[in-house]
Structures are given as structure tokens and as C-alpha cells.
Simulated scan of single mutants.
Amino acid sequence: MFIVFIPIYVFLFLPVPRIIGKGTLGFLRSVSFTQWGMMLMVFGLSHLAFYSSASPEYGPNLVLYLIVLTQVNDVVHSIISLYFGRHKVVPTSNPNISWEGFIGAFLTTTIVSYVLYPYFTPFGIQYGVLSGVLISVTGYFGSLTVSVLKRDLLIGDKEKFETLQGKYLSRIDSLTYTAPVFFHVTRYFFDFM
């Protein structure tokens, strides 16, 4: 039920109050905002809570492992992009996301995951390397997607955009992607739970 409730039932029935209340005018934009937000902030992040209930012994360690690696990836990516980033990925949405930052964060996150996996996970070396690669790549796409999403929503509203700079959404954008992907790979390929 955890895996299907939000993506299926909420997706199907969430538009009903909107249809009854306001009809067709602006329907697609309104419903897509709500559903995209639910998928990112509720469904994506809710995977973190599922670890502990699924495995009281290893769940909290896996959550900590995921959060540490996601943050390492974000910080290294930001620092390298800031000082060495010459090739911007999407300069119109976020000038701080560069290919140099991606490569540096990819290598660093993979090395850190290799060093940390014996302390946080019950799995072997293959998991240690794969989890670093996986978290780095999915974190990058999460950060990029949320950056584009924020820019699109705030086009023309420079004051609101500056207010949102550095807020919580920038801290968890990568986690909205890394949490579900890390969960599913751990669950289905490494026989966790």
C-alpha cells in the first residue's frame, strides 16, 4: 500500500475536488502543481520513513548513510561548480550546476560511499560502490529538476525568488530523488527487508 497509495490513488482522486470546485478553467496547471509537489515532497521523501519500519535493525543506519552521501554530493558539487565550473548544464535555471561539479561530486560521493558502507550497511563492496554512483547521479537530477521547477514557478518574481534562496527546498531537492531510487535498489536488488 505504501508504494501505490500516492502515485496511484492520490493521482487519480486528487483532481476530483478541483473539478467540483472550479471546473475546467486552469485545471491542468492547478492539478499538475499539486501532483508534482506531492510526488516530490511527500512520496519521494516518505521513503525515508519506510526504512525504519521495514528494518528496525538496519533502517536508521541506511537513512543516515543516504542523507550523508546526498549532502556530500550536494556540497562537493556546489564547491567545484563555484570555483572550477566552466561548462554550465542549464545556465538559465541554475548557473551553479556545472559538468565539472557533477564529475567531481560523482567521484567524491563514490569514494565516500566506499569508505562508509561497512559502518552503515550490512551489504558488500558492490553495494558500497553502487550506492555512491546511484546517489550521485540521482541527486544531480533531483537538484537540477527542482532548480528548473523553481525558476519556472518564479519567472518574473525576483523578490520571491531571492526570498527562497537557501531555504529548505534547496537542502532537500536532491533527497527527493535519492530517497526513492536508493530505497528501491536496496529493496529489490540487495534483499533488504
Rank of each mutant, 00 (worst) to 15 (best):
F161R: 05
V90E: 06
V148D: 06
V89M: 12
S174F: 09
F123M: 10
V115P: 01
Y83R: 15
L62G: 01
S93N: 09
N73I: 07
E57H: 11
L175Y: 00
Y168Q: 00
Y117P: 06
F106N: 07
N61V: 06
L69V: 09
G142A: 11
K167G: 09
S113K: 05
S131V: 14
I135T: 09
T92N: 14
S81L: 02
K167Q: 15
Q126I: 15
V181Y: 07
S78H: 12
R187N: 12
T186C: 13
I67T: 06
L116Q: 13
I111K: 12
T138K: 05
A105H: 03
P122R: 04
G166S: 10
V115K: 11
I135G: 00
N96I: 00
S136N: 06
I111W: 13
G85N: 13
V89Y: 04
F120G: 01
V76R: 02
V72D: 05
V68P: 00
N94D: 14
G104F: 05
A49F: 14
A179G: 07
I79R: 06
A105N: 13
L82M: 06
T110P: 11
S81A: 03
L69G: 02
V115W: 08
Y83S: 11
V76N: 04
F120Q: 04
S55D: 15
Y168V: 06
F183I: 11
S174N: 13
F106Y: 09
T186M: 11
D157W: 12
G166Q: 03
V115Y: 12
V63C: 03
I67G: 02
S53F: 14
Y140M: 09
Q165L: 14
S143Q: 03
D157A: 10
Y51S: 04
I135S: 05
T186I: 11
G166C: 11
S147Y: 00
I111G: 12
K88F: 09
S136R: 08
S147H: 03
F141D: 02
P95S: 12
L62E: 05
Y119N: 10
A54W: 06
I80N: 11
R86V: 07
Y51G: 05
E162G: 06
V185F: 13
T176F: 02
S147D: 00
T109D: 10
N73V: 07
S52K: 05
V112K: 04
